[in-house]
Design a protein around this nucleic acid. Structure first.
Length: 309
DNA sequence: AATGCGGCCAACCGCTGCCAT
DNA sequence: TATGGCAGCGGTTGGCCGCAT
């Protein structure tokens, strides 16, 4: 493949890792941390490229990696999140402690996708799974409807975010994400929030206002973005207070991209950040949200089991 | 027992976006 | 503001393994 390799190939080992290499990598990281992945192999005495070391550590050697078969709960989570996020494996993995994006990706491609497709075929509704059409959904089986609904919800979420991004960009003085946040924080929404959640205000103020780094500010801003997004399903762009307080508690980072030239036009201009993200959990369990049905329907499990007929 | 085939998964490749300068 | 370096991410590949013939 045409492009130059990421690192010097000469003298760099490839392929499966030996136990000795694993031990060297683990020992080095335990002593020094990984630091710069690029320079790590040299310091650790490994004849590997930095990317290879990083991948090996993240997917196999890192503490807390969970091995073994996926539980039904994990399967459910994967399918639900995939319905919303698509192939955002890292975001999905952030909701499954101990599982890596690579593992989830493999599991999806080798197990879940086939099972869901089989289920679709068995209902002679494959085309509905590919092209959701709300006008047809009513006449199909519950499991088929859910497949369609997942896709619809995902598309809708993207559309909402595009609108939201446009809205934020339209504020005359809003040039940066932290500014968006500060304006929201100082708005009526923010005031109401502070009144309702006065007890927790100190935490909020600390975590959202006094963030030292730009990335933290972006995450804070994105919290507000999600508050707006979660409540635009009906008619209002103003978050309901109970949802605001709920979202506030999370450490999430749902970050709309605010580039002027893409706002409002690119349905993919958002991304989930942060492995501690609990935004998705709230989304899944939000009673008033479009996602509520995902967390409580037996047909969903039937889909996974391939028993939906 | 030998061979072919398909599934699985660890690892690699290349693109994207962030950040420092 | 432009640019280069880097980490992270998702898609793809290749080798191993189990099963069928």
């Amino acid at each position: 493949m045409g492009k130059a390799p990421c690192c010097e190939k000469h003298g760099v080992r490839r392929g499966a890792w030996t136990p000795e290499e694993d031990q060297s990598l683990v020992d080095y990281i335990h002593k020094h941390g990984h630091g710069s992945w690029r320079s790590l192999p040299k310091h650790a005495g490994l004849l590997r490229c930095g990317k290879s070391c990083r991948l090996r550590w993240i997917n196999y050697l890192r503490p807390g990696i969970k091995r073994g078969p996926f539980t039904s709960e994990e399967e459910s989570t994967i399918v639900q999140l995939h319905g919303m996020l698509g192939n955002r494996w890292a975001s999905i993995a952030s909701q499954l402690p101990g599982r890596t994006d690579n593992e989830i990706k493999n599991y999806w491609n080798t197990h879940l996708k086939k099972r869901l497709l089989r289920s679709c075929y068995s209902q002679r509704a494959k085309q509905l799974c590919v092209i959701p059409d709300p006008t047809i959904v009513k006449s199909e089986s519950p499991s088929t409807r859910h497949m369609v609904q997942w896709e619809s919800v995902r598309v809708e979420a993207e559309a909402r975010l595009s609108m939201e991004s446009t809205m934020l960009n339209s504020w005359p003085t809003s040039k940066t994400c932290p500014d968006h946040f500060l304006q929201l924080w100082n708005s009526e929404v923010g005031k109401s929030f502070r009144m309702i959640k006065g007890k927790e205000e100190g935490v909020v103020s600390q975590s959202l206002v006094s963030q030292p780094s730009s990335s933290s500010k972006l995450e804070s801003c994105s919290d507000v973005s999600l508050q707006v997004k979660n409540n635009t399903g009906n008619s209002s762009c103003i978050p309901k207070l109970e949802d605001v307080s709920m979202v506030h508690e999370q450490t999430s980072s749902y970050k709309p991209k605010l580039d002027d030239d893409t706002a409002g036009s690119d349905s993919g201009n958002y991304e989930f950040l942060d492995t501690s993200d609990s935004t998705l959990k709230h989304l899944l369990h939000m009673p008033d949200s479009d996602m509520g049905f995902l967390g409580q329907n037996d047909h969903f499990q039937n889909l996974l089991d391939g028993t939906c007929d």
